[in-house]
């Protein structure tokens, strides 16, 4: 059965691609960014040649929480107990260097590792890495054993401790399953950038950069080529796709 929607969008894409000079990304309107090099037609699977990543510039990050707030709003994980049973997909961590006393603040979320330990340990295969490197929980089959939470070195995952109401249409959440940052896969698949990055940009800080790490022409790759980045717990060799700069 042919799909009208697919064909239409394919046609548009083809027209678009024939004329398009491959550029890394362009802003149509604030918060609406197109990644032409990676744009993927509806009906096609995530591309294994893509590795979505984030680069976070700590020198531009102060103690604001717009990224956290934007994520809550976008994905609807606002808890109301105020304790550690609430979900927290992204959090701001305040750091103080034990020697110099220098303070800094940075967001921490799922690092979308190339070799994610959560995926290794999940007994049923609910923890999974998409072809384009985004690590997700398949809540359809998650049994809620929480072994992935034991295995994650970043404390990035949350277990849903109570019944959930008022979920976002694009983001199902349910009691008894584990969840974490999806790198806004629902937005990325629609050629949008993750909500946290969008909010950070909109706040004027521009501390977060999103893009394809495997495209040498992407902004993020170019930037990474210029500077030396920090991967959290690099000693573990998990190759996280979220990286930091100016630590």
């Amino acid at each position: 059965m042919s799909n009208i929607r697919d064909n239409d969008i394919d046609k548009a894409r083809r027209q678009f691609m024939t004329g398009a000079v491959a550029t890394a990304g362009m802003t149509i309107a604030p918060g609406f960014m197109l990644y032409t090099a990676e744009a993927r037609p509806a009906g096609t699977a995530a591309d294994p040649k893509v590795r979505w990543g984030l680069l976070i510039d700590i020198s531009k990050c102060d103690d604001c929480t717009v990224c956290v707030d934007a994520c809550k709003k976008e994905n609807g994980w606002q808890g109301h107990r105020g304790d550690l049973t609430d979900a927290q997909w992204i959090r701001k961590v305040d750091l103080k260097d034990k020697n110099t006393g220098v303070k800094s603040s940075l967001p921490v979320m799922c690092m979308h590792c190339e070799y994610p330990p959560c995926v290794d340990v999940c007994p049923v295969g609910a923890s999974m890495k998409r072809a384009d490197g985004i690590v997700l929980v398949d809540k359809h089959i998650c049994i809620g054993c929480r072994y992935c939470m034991m295995a994650c070195p970043y404390g990035a995952r949350s277990f849903v401790h109570e019944e959930v109401h008022g979920q976002k249409t694009h983001l199902p959440r349910g009691q008894g399953t584990v969840e974490s940052c999806t790198m806004c896969a629902h937005r990325v698949d629609n050629d949008q950038i993750p909500a946290c990055v969008e909010a950070c940009n909109a706040s004027g800080r521009e501390a977060m950069m999103f893009g394809n790490l495997r495209d040498p022409n992407s902004d993020i790759s170019k930037r990474i080529a210029e500077i030396s980045t920090v991967k959290l717990r690099a000693d573990m060799g998990l190759d996280p796709h979220v990286q930091y700069v100016n630590f």
Binding site: R91, K92, D94, P153, G155
Partner: peptide
């Protein structure tokens, strides 16, 4: 997660 640093957060 951050060796050599004191880390605090709401988490």
């Amino acid at each position: 997660i951050f060796p050599g640093m004191e880390a605090t957060s709401s988490w």
